[in-house]
Protein backbone atom coordinates (compact mmCIF):
# COMPACT_ATOMS: atom_id res chain seq x y z
CA UNK A 1 0.00 0.00 0.00
CA UNK A 2 1.16 3.51 -0.84
CA UNK A 3 2.10 5.78 1.99
CA UNK A 4 -0.09 8.85 1.57
CA UNK A 5 1.02 10.77 4.62
CA UNK A 6 4.29 10.53 6.49
CA UNK A 7 4.96 12.36 9.71
CA UNK A 8 8.63 12.39 10.62
CA UNK A 9 10.04 13.42 13.98
CA UNK A 10 7.44 16.17 14.52
CA UNK A 11 8.03 18.63 17.33
CA UNK A 12 5.45 21.23 18.39
CA UNK A 13 5.64 23.55 21.35
CA UNK A 14 3.55 26.33 22.82
CA UNK A 15 4.99 29.36 24.52
CA UNK A 16 3.04 30.33 27.63
CA UNK A 17 3.68 32.68 30.52
CA UNK A 18 5.05 29.73 32.48
CA UNK A 19 7.51 28.80 29.74
CA UNK A 20 7.59 26.58 26.70
CA UNK A 21 5.28 23.58 26.71
CA UNK A 22 6.63 20.82 24.52
CA UNK A 23 3.34 19.27 23.48
CA UNK A 24 4.64 17.02 20.71
CA UNK A 25 8.17 15.68 21.07
CA UNK A 26 9.19 13.69 18.05
CA UNK A 27 6.14 11.94 16.63
CA UNK A 28 6.63 9.76 13.57
CA UNK A 29 4.11 7.60 11.74
CA UNK A 30 2.97 6.70 8.26
CA UNK A 31 -0.57 6.64 6.96
CA UNK A 32 -1.32 4.23 4.13
CA UNK A 33 -3.95 4.60 1.45
CA UNK A 34 -7.39 3.47 2.53
CA UNK A 35 -6.49 2.54 6.10
CA UNK A 36 -7.70 3.80 9.45
CA UNK A 37 -5.00 4.73 11.91
CA UNK A 38 -6.14 5.41 15.45
CA UNK A 39 -4.11 7.62 17.73
CA UNK A 40 -5.02 6.94 21.36
CA UNK A 41 -3.86 8.39 24.63
CA UNK A 42 -5.12 10.29 27.63
CA UNK A 43 -6.00 13.97 27.67
CA UNK A 44 -3.04 16.24 27.09
CA UNK A 45 -0.81 13.63 25.50
CA UNK A 46 -0.56 15.66 22.29
CA UNK A 47 -2.88 13.72 20.00
CA UNK A 48 -5.07 16.66 19.06
CA UNK A 49 -2.05 18.92 18.65
CA UNK A 50 -0.53 16.36 16.29
CA UNK A 51 -3.68 16.25 14.18
CA UNK A 52 -4.09 20.01 14.05
CA UNK A 53 -0.43 20.39 13.16
CA UNK A 54 -0.96 18.19 10.12
CA UNK A 55 -3.61 20.70 8.98
CA UNK A 56 -1.38 23.54 10.16
CA UNK A 57 -4.24 24.85 12.23
CA UNK A 58 -2.15 25.42 15.34
CA UNK A 59 -2.54 29.07 16.25
CA UNK A 60 0.82 30.73 15.87
CA UNK A 61 1.65 32.34 18.26
CA UNK A 62 1.59 30.67 20.79
CA UNK A 63 2.03 27.36 18.93
CA UNK A 64 5.11 26.63 16.88
CA UNK A 65 6.33 23.70 14.84
CA UNK A 66 9.90 23.37 16.05
CA UNK A 67 11.02 20.48 13.90
CA UNK A 68 10.17 17.54 11.67
CA UNK A 69 8.45 16.94 8.38
CA UNK A 70 4.88 16.24 7.31
CA UNK A 71 5.00 14.67 3.86
CA UNK A 72 1.72 14.52 1.98
CA UNK A 73 2.26 12.57 -1.24
CA UNK A 74 5.94 13.45 -0.88
CA UNK A 75 5.33 17.21 -0.43
CA UNK A 76 6.38 18.76 2.88
CA UNK A 77 3.36 20.63 4.29
CA UNK A 78 5.44 22.43 6.90
CA UNK A 79 7.29 24.30 4.18
CA UNK A 80 4.10 25.37 2.37
CA UNK A 81 3.07 29.00 2.58
CA UNK A 82 -0.38 29.82 3.97
CA UNK A 83 -2.17 30.37 0.60
CA UNK A 84 -0.83 27.05 -0.70
CA UNK A 85 -1.75 25.31 2.53
CA UNK A 86 -5.28 26.66 2.13
CA UNK A 87 -5.56 24.72 -1.12
CA UNK A 88 -4.65 21.53 0.74
CA UNK A 89 -7.09 22.06 3.60
CA UNK A 90 -10.50 20.69 2.82
CA UNK A 91 -9.45 19.54 -0.65
CA UNK A 92 -6.71 16.98 0.14
CA UNK A 93 -6.87 16.72 3.90
CA UNK A 94 -10.08 17.34 5.83
CA UNK A 95 -10.85 17.47 9.46
CA UNK A 96 -13.79 16.66 11.70
CA UNK A 97 -13.96 18.17 15.14
CA UNK A 98 -15.19 16.78 18.39
CA UNK A 99 -18.42 18.60 19.06
CA UNK A 100 -20.96 18.70 16.23
CA UNK A 101 -23.11 21.05 18.30
CA UNK A 102 -20.57 23.84 17.93
CA UNK A 103 -18.74 22.88 14.74
CA UNK A 104 -21.49 24.25 12.50
CA UNK A 105 -22.16 27.94 12.06
CA UNK A 106 -25.61 28.60 13.56
CA UNK A 107 -26.44 31.44 11.17
CA UNK A 108 -25.85 29.67 7.84
CA UNK A 109 -27.88 26.93 6.22
CA UNK A 110 -26.47 23.42 6.05
CA UNK A 111 -26.42 23.61 2.26
CA UNK A 112 -24.46 26.82 2.30
CA UNK A 113 -21.89 25.36 4.67
CA UNK A 114 -21.47 22.15 2.71
CA UNK A 115 -21.26 23.89 -0.65
CA UNK A 116 -18.80 26.62 0.28
CA UNK A 117 -16.02 24.04 0.51
CA UNK A 118 -16.52 22.81 -3.05
CA UNK A 119 -16.99 26.29 -4.38
CA UNK A 120 -13.72 27.28 -2.76
CA UNK A 121 -11.70 24.45 -4.24
CA UNK A 122 -13.37 23.37 -7.45
CA UNK A 123 -15.07 26.45 -8.88
CA UNK A 124 -18.33 24.71 -9.66
CA UNK A 125 -21.54 26.52 -10.53
CA UNK A 126 -24.20 26.78 -7.83
CA UNK A 127 -26.26 24.01 -9.40
CA UNK A 128 -23.32 21.63 -9.71
CA UNK A 129 -22.26 22.38 -6.15
CA UNK A 130 -25.78 21.68 -4.98
CA UNK A 131 -25.75 18.33 -6.78
CA UNK A 132 -22.52 17.35 -5.01
CA UNK A 133 -23.95 18.47 -1.68
CA UNK A 134 -27.05 16.34 -2.24
CA UNK A 135 -24.88 13.33 -3.08
CA UNK A 136 -22.91 13.88 0.10
CA UNK A 137 -26.00 14.11 2.27
CA UNK A 138 -27.16 10.85 0.70
CA UNK A 139 -23.78 9.29 1.37
CA UNK A 140 -23.88 10.16 5.07
CA UNK A 141 -27.48 8.99 5.34
CA UNK A 142 -29.54 12.14 5.78
CA UNK A 143 -33.10 11.61 4.58
CA UNK A 144 -34.87 14.28 2.46
CA UNK A 145 -31.62 16.00 1.53
CA UNK A 146 -33.38 18.44 -0.78
CA UNK A 147 -35.33 19.94 2.14
CA UNK A 148 -32.56 19.51 4.70
CA UNK A 149 -30.17 21.56 2.59
CA UNK A 150 -32.16 24.70 3.31
CA UNK A 151 -32.31 24.16 7.06
CA UNK A 152 -30.15 25.55 9.84
CA UNK A 153 -28.00 23.55 12.28
CA UNK A 154 -30.40 24.04 15.19
CA UNK A 155 -32.98 22.05 13.30
CA UNK A 156 -30.86 18.88 13.49
CA UNK A 157 -30.08 16.44 16.30
CA UNK A 158 -26.52 15.85 17.50
CA UNK A 159 -26.02 12.67 15.49
CA UNK A 160 -27.45 14.30 12.37
CA UNK A 161 -25.14 17.25 12.81
CA UNK A 162 -22.13 14.97 13.06
CA UNK A 163 -23.26 13.36 9.80
CA UNK A 164 -23.40 16.83 8.25
CA UNK A 165 -19.96 17.67 9.58
CA UNK A 166 -18.70 14.46 7.97
CA UNK A 167 -20.44 15.32 4.69
CA UNK A 168 -18.84 18.75 4.83
CA UNK A 169 -15.40 17.21 5.32
CA UNK A 170 -15.84 14.74 2.48
CA UNK A 171 -17.35 17.07 -0.07
CA UNK A 172 -14.11 17.61 -2.01
CA UNK A 173 -13.20 13.91 -1.93
CA UNK A 174 -10.09 14.38 0.24
CA UNK A 175 -7.37 11.73 0.45
CA UNK A 176 -7.03 12.01 4.20
CA UNK A 177 -9.72 12.57 6.79
CA UNK A 178 -8.66 13.50 10.30
CA UNK A 179 -11.36 12.85 12.86
CA UNK A 180 -10.59 14.40 16.23
CA UNK A 181 -12.70 12.55 18.80
CA UNK A 182 -15.68 12.38 16.42
CA UNK A 183 -17.87 10.38 18.77
CA UNK A 184 -16.98 11.78 22.18
CA UNK A 185 -19.86 14.25 22.27
CA UNK A 186 -22.45 11.73 21.10
CA UNK A 187 -24.43 9.19 23.08
CA UNK A 188 -23.56 5.54 22.71
CA UNK A 189 -26.15 4.42 20.18
CA UNK A 190 -25.34 7.35 17.93
CA UNK A 191 -21.62 6.62 18.39
CA UNK A 192 -22.12 3.17 16.91
CA UNK A 193 -24.00 4.62 13.94
CA UNK A 194 -21.30 7.18 13.25
CA UNK A 195 -18.54 4.57 13.45
CA UNK A 196 -20.52 2.38 11.07
CA UNK A 197 -20.75 5.40 8.77
CA UNK A 198 -16.98 5.86 8.85
CA UNK A 199 -16.45 2.26 7.75
CA UNK A 200 -19.07 2.59 5.07
CA UNK A 201 -17.57 5.81 3.70
CA UNK A 202 -14.09 4.36 3.67
CA UNK A 203 -15.34 1.41 1.66
CA UNK A 204 -17.06 3.71 -0.85
CA UNK A 205 -14.44 6.42 -1.22
CA UNK A 206 -11.17 4.81 -0.16
CA UNK A 207 -10.29 7.75 2.07
CA UNK A 208 -7.53 7.26 4.66
CA UNK A 209 -8.64 8.12 8.16
CA UNK A 210 -6.70 9.30 11.18
CA UNK A 211 -8.90 8.75 14.18
CA UNK A 212 -7.98 10.62 17.33
CA UNK A 213 -9.62 9.21 20.41
CA UNK A 214 -9.22 8.20 24.01
CA UNK A 215 -11.93 5.59 23.71
CA UNK A 216 -10.48 2.14 23.18
CA UNK A 217 -13.93 0.77 22.41
CA UNK A 218 -14.11 3.03 19.36
CA UNK A 219 -10.63 1.97 18.33
CA UNK A 220 -11.47 -1.71 18.54
CA UNK A 221 -14.37 -1.21 16.14
CA UNK A 222 -12.77 0.71 13.31
CA UNK A 223 -8.98 0.98 13.47
CA UNK A 224 -6.63 -1.00 11.24
CA UNK A 225 -3.59 0.20 13.12
CA UNK A 226 -3.22 1.86 16.48
CA UNK A 227 -0.64 4.36 17.73
CA UNK A 228 -0.47 4.88 21.49
CA UNK A 229 0.70 8.31 22.54
CA UNK A 230 2.08 9.34 25.87
CA UNK A 231 3.46 12.73 26.87
CA UNK A 232 4.01 13.94 23.33
CA UNK A 233 5.48 10.75 21.89
CA UNK A 234 4.17 7.63 20.21
CA UNK A 235 5.26 4.88 22.59
CA UNK A 236 3.81 1.92 20.75
CA UNK A 237 2.35 1.40 17.31
CA UNK A 238 1.02 -1.74 15.69
CA UNK A 239 -1.91 -3.43 14.07
CA UNK A 240 -5.16 -3.58 16.02
CA UNK A 241 -4.55 -7.28 16.78
CA UNK A 242 -1.04 -6.68 18.03
CA UNK A 243 -2.00 -3.79 20.29
CA UNK A 244 -5.04 -5.49 21.78
CA UNK A 245 -3.65 -9.03 22.10
CA UNK A 246 0.06 -8.54 22.66
CA UNK A 247 0.65 -5.06 23.99
CA UNK A 248 4.30 -4.55 24.88
CA UNK A 249 4.53 -1.12 26.45
CA UNK A 250 3.53 -1.01 30.13
CA UNK A 251 1.43 2.07 29.35
CA UNK A 252 -0.54 0.27 26.65
CA UNK A 253 -1.05 -2.64 29.03
CA UNK A 254 -2.26 -0.24 31.70
CA UNK A 255 -4.68 1.42 29.30
CA UNK A 256 -6.18 -1.91 28.29
CA UNK A 257 -6.57 -3.00 31.91
CA UNK A 258 -8.43 0.18 32.73
CA UNK A 259 -11.16 -0.43 30.14
CA UNK A 260 -14.34 -2.05 31.47
CA UNK A 261 -15.14 -5.38 29.83
CA UNK A 262 -18.34 -7.36 29.78
CA UNK A 263 -16.94 -10.59 28.42
CA UNK A 264 -14.67 -11.53 31.30
CA UNK A 265 -15.61 -12.81 34.72
CA UNK A 266 -14.40 -10.94 37.76
CA UNK A 267 -13.08 -8.19 35.58
CA UNK A 268 -11.55 -5.65 37.90
CA UNK A 269 -10.61 -2.22 36.59
CA UNK A 270 -7.03 -1.37 37.34
CA UNK A 271 -6.28 2.33 37.05
CA UNK A 272 -2.81 3.59 36.18
CA UNK A 273 -1.54 5.36 39.30
CA UNK A 274 -0.07 8.85 39.12
CA UNK A 275 -0.47 11.60 36.56
CA UNK A 276 1.27 12.40 33.27
CA UNK A 277 4.48 14.42 33.54
CA UNK A 278 4.67 18.17 33.28
CA UNK A 279 5.50 19.05 29.70
CA UNK A 280 7.21 22.29 30.70
CA UNK A 281 10.12 20.11 31.76
CA UNK A 282 9.64 16.69 30.24
CA UNK A 283 11.76 13.92 31.75
CA UNK A 284 14.99 13.05 29.98
CA UNK A 285 14.25 9.36 29.96
CA UNK A 286 10.99 7.54 29.43
CA UNK A 287 8.12 9.84 30.42
CA UNK A 288 6.13 6.92 31.77
CA UNK A 289 8.88 5.69 34.10
CA UNK A 290 7.47 7.48 37.15
CA UNK A 291 4.18 5.57 36.84
CA UNK A 292 5.58 2.33 35.44
CA UNK A 293 5.46 -0.76 37.66
CA UNK A 294 8.45 -2.24 35.77
CA UNK A 295 10.63 0.86 35.77
CA UNK A 296 14.38 0.33 35.96
CA UNK A 297 17.15 2.74 36.75
CA UNK A 298 17.93 3.30 33.09
CA UNK A 299 14.34 4.33 32.29
CA UNK A 300 14.70 7.65 34.16
CA UNK A 301 17.97 8.53 32.50
CA UNK A 302 17.90 7.53 28.85
CA UNK A 303 14.99 7.44 26.41
CA UNK A 304 14.61 3.88 25.09
CA UNK A 305 15.32 3.14 21.43
CA UNK A 306 12.60 1.89 19.13
CA UNK A 307 12.28 -1.88 19.06
CA UNK A 308 10.77 -3.22 15.85
CA UNK A 309 8.89 -6.37 16.90
CA UNK A 310 7.12 -7.22 13.64
CA UNK A 311 7.01 -5.22 10.44
CA UNK A 312 4.11 -3.20 11.82
CA UNK A 313 4.59 -3.44 15.56
CA UNK A 314 7.19 -1.27 17.28
CA UNK A 315 7.58 -0.08 20.85
CA UNK A 316 9.78 2.37 22.76
CA UNK A 317 10.61 0.53 25.96
CA UNK A 318 13.74 -0.64 27.80
CA UNK A 319 12.03 -3.92 28.66
CA UNK A 320 12.61 -4.92 25.04
CA UNK A 321 16.36 -4.69 25.52
CA UNK A 322 17.94 -8.13 25.59
CA UNK A 323 19.63 -7.44 28.94
CA UNK A 324 16.24 -6.72 30.45
CA UNK A 325 14.82 -9.83 28.81
CA UNK A 326 17.61 -11.89 30.42
CA UNK A 327 16.80 -10.39 33.81
CA UNK A 328 13.15 -11.26 33.36
CA UNK A 329 13.93 -14.86 32.47
CA UNK A 330 16.18 -15.14 35.57
CA UNK A 331 13.34 -14.53 37.98
Amino acid sequence: MEKILQVKDLHVSFSTYGGEVKAVRGVSFDLHEGETLAIVGESGCGKSVTSQTIMKLIPNPPGKITGGEILFKGKDLIKLKEPEMRKVRGANISMIFQDPMTALNPTLTIGDQIMEGIKQHEHLSNDQAKQVALEMLNLVGIPNPEIRLKQYPHQFSGGMRQRIVIAMALVCRPDVLIADEPTTALDVTIQAQILELFRDIQKKTGVSIILITHDLGVVAQVADRIAVMYAGRIVEIGSRREIFYSPQHPYTKGLLKSVPRLDMEKAELIPIPGTPPDLFLPPVGCAFAARCPYAMEVCDKVYPFKSQLTNQHSVDCWLQDERAQKLVSKY
Binding site: L57, R86, M95, Q98, L104, Q120, H121
Partner: peptide, 21 residues
Protein backbone atom coordinates in the same frame (compact mmCIF):
# COMPACT_ATOMS: atom_id res chain seq x y z
CA UNK B 1 -15.60 29.15 18.24
CA UNK B 2 -15.39 25.68 16.74
CA UNK B 3 -17.21 26.67 13.57
CA UNK B 4 -14.45 29.14 12.78
CA UNK B 5 -11.97 26.28 13.11
CA UNK B 6 -14.22 24.25 10.81
CA UNK B 7 -14.22 27.07 8.29
CA UNK B 8 -10.43 27.24 8.43
CA UNK B 9 -10.22 23.48 7.97
CA UNK B 10 -12.28 23.86 4.78
CA UNK B 11 -9.52 26.00 3.34
CA UNK B 12 -11.51 29.23 3.23
CA UNK B 13 -9.65 32.51 2.93
CA UNK B 14 -9.37 34.74 6.02
CA UNK B 15 -11.58 37.38 4.38
CA UNK B 16 -14.36 34.85 3.83
CA UNK B 17 -14.00 33.50 7.35
CA UNK B 18 -14.31 36.96 8.87
CA UNK B 19 -17.16 38.29 6.78
CA UNK B 20 -19.22 35.19 6.16
CA UNK B 21 -18.71 33.21 9.33
Amino acid sequence: QDYIKTAKAKGLSPVKIVFKH
